[in-house]
């Protein structure tokens, strides 16, 4: 496939969307027990701040799957930025 000026933007779009998808999966893993009932014991436990996976400060007890999914998701988002910067640096100045 020939590279066009839109290719870096498509790369950035795919990485941002995929990053978001993984972040959504991380949230879904955390809140899965709440689908049935919000008064379920597991669901109530998951409402504690210790299960927050985005900021790893004490006390932290995030599920390994949520940490992995969210971490990789954020890396993908970061990986999209070089493409955005490449496009932005090639803009003609007014």
């Amino acid at each position: 496939m020939a590279k066009t000026s839109g290719t870096p933007w498509y790369t950035a779009a795919a990485l941002v969307a995929l990053g978001g998808l993984l972040m959504a999966a991380a949230a879904a893993v955390r809140w899965l027990p709440c689908l049935g009932s919000r008064t379920d014991q597991t669901c109530v436990a998951r409402q504690s701040r210790v299960y927050d996976y985005l900021v790893p400060t004490e006390p932290w007890q995030a599920l390994p799957a949520t940490a992995l999914l969210a971490g990789v998701g954020m890396f993908l988002l970061a990986a999209g930025w070089p493409s955005v910067r490449r496009c932005a640096s090639s803009w003609p100045r007014s």
């Binding site: 941002v16 998808l21 972040m23 949230a27 955390r30 809140w31």
Partner: peptide, 22 residues
């Protein structure tokens, strides 16, 4: 303490941003 579903909205908006760019 943390409402069920937290994290989903931002992730969905991020997906929307990617789709929007495309």
């Amino acid at each position: 303490e943390v409402a069920p579903g937290s994290g989903l909205l931002t992730a969905v908006i991020m997906i929307g941003c990617g789709v929007g760019i495309a």
